[in-house]
Simulated assay, not measured.
Amino acid sequence: MPESVPFWFAIAIVAYLGYKLARPPMWLVIVLLIAGFLLAHSFLAPAIESGTTTGVTVVTPTTAKP
């Protein structure tokens, strides 16, 4: 029986490890967070969503059921 991990928790772990390993300046982290938030609410949001959906299907292809 597989375990289910919330997506936000997985992202938080990756973000924590990335910050600890790369040590970017705090101002850069804040700028990237604000820019990501603003970009998600812009006219580019549908293109970003389409690109991530396509990327997920490329990385994890589904098998066709007979």
Score class of each variant (00 low, 15 high):
residue 49 E to H: 08
residue 37 F to S: 11
residue 49 E to L: 11
residue 59 V to G: 09
residue 34 I to D: 06
residue 36 G to N: 04
residue 41 H to Y: 12
residue 53 T to M: 05
residue 60 T to V: 14
residue 36 G to K: 03
residue 55 G to E: 05
residue 33 L to H: 09
residue 40 A to L: 04
residue 38 L to T: 05
residue 37 F to D: 09
residue 50 S to H: 11
residue 49 E to Q: 13
residue 41 H to L: 03
residue 57 T to K: 04
residue 57 T to N: 14
residue 63 T to H: 10
residue 57 T to W: 00
residue 57 T to F: 00
residue 36 G to D: 04
residue 35 A to G: 10
residue 54 T to V: 12
residue 53 T to H: 11
residue 38 L to G: 00
residue 36 G to S: 06
residue 64 A to T: 14
residue 54 T to N: 09
residue 54 T to S: 10
residue 49 E to V: 04
residue 37 F to L: 13
residue 53 T to N: 13
residue 60 T to L: 15
residue 38 L to C: 10
residue 50 S to T: 09
residue 41 H to R: 11
residue 34 I to V: 14
residue 53 T to E: 03
residue 32 L to I: 12
residue 61 P to W: 03
residue 46 P to C: 12
residue 51 G to K: 01
residue 56 V to A: 12
residue 60 T to S: 08
residue 58 V to Y: 13
residue 45 A to F: 02
residue 52 T to M: 07
residue 47 A to W: 01
residue 36 G to Q: 02
residue 52 T to S: 09
residue 34 I to Q: 05
residue 50 S to V: 05
residue 55 G to P: 03
residue 41 H to S: 09
residue 64 A to F: 15
residue 35 A to R: 01
residue 42 S to W: 00
residue 41 H to M: 11
residue 42 S to L: 03
residue 52 T to R: 00
residue 64 A to W: 15
residue 48 I to H: 02
residue 36 G to I: 00
residue 35 A to Y: 07
residue 56 V to G: 04
residue 63 T to W: 06
residue 33 L to Q: 09
residue 44 L to E: 04
residue 42 S to V: 05
residue 42 S to K: 03
residue 52 T to L: 09
residue 47 A to N: 11
residue 51 G to R: 03
residue 38 L to D: 02
residue 59 V to S: 12
residue 56 V to Y: 10
residue 41 H to W: 08
residue 39 L to G: 11
residue 47 A to C: 10
residue 51 G to W: 00
residue 56 V to N: 08
residue 64 A to D: 12
residue 33 L to F: 11
residue 36 G to Y: 01
residue 62 T to I: 15
residue 63 T to S: 12
residue 38 L to R: 02
residue 39 L to F: 06
residue 62 T to K: 13
residue 34 I to E: 05
residue 44 L to V: 01
residue 45 A to P: 00
residue 49 E to P: 00
residue 48 I to G: 05
residue 37 F to K: 09
residue 43 F to E: 05
residue 32 L to M: 12
residue 56 V to R: 02
residue 48 I to R: 10
residue 48 I to M: 13
residue 33 L to S: 11
residue 48 I to Q: 06
residue 64 A to K: 14
residue 43 F to N: 04
residue 40 A to R: 00
residue 35 A to D: 07
residue 53 T to P: 04
residue 46 P to K: 03
residue 39 L to C: 13
residue 61 P to K: 08
residue 63 T to R: 08
residue 58 V to I: 15
residue 44 L to K: 02
residue 44 L to N: 07
residue 50 S to Q: 13
residue 64 A to I: 14
residue 45 A to L: 04
residue 44 L to W: 03
residue 44 L to R: 02
residue 62 T to G: 14
residue 58 V to R: 15
residue 43 F to M: 07
residue 56 V to D: 06
residue 50 S to A: 12
residue 55 G to S: 07
residue 40 A to C: 10
residue 32 L to N: 11
residue 36 G to R: 04
residue 46 P to H: 01
residue 41 H to P: 02
residue 50 S to K: 12
residue 56 V to S: 08
residue 40 A to F: 01
residue 53 T to S: 14
residue 57 T to G: 14
residue 45 A to R: 00
residue 37 F to Y: 07
residue 47 A to I: 02
residue 64 A to L: 15
residue 52 T to E: 08
residue 38 L to P: 02
residue 43 F to I: 03
residue 56 V to W: 00
residue 42 S to R: 01
residue 34 I to R: 10
residue 45 A to S: 09
residue 40 A to S: 14
residue 55 G to N: 07
residue 52 T to D: 09
residue 51 G to E: 05
residue 53 T to R: 10
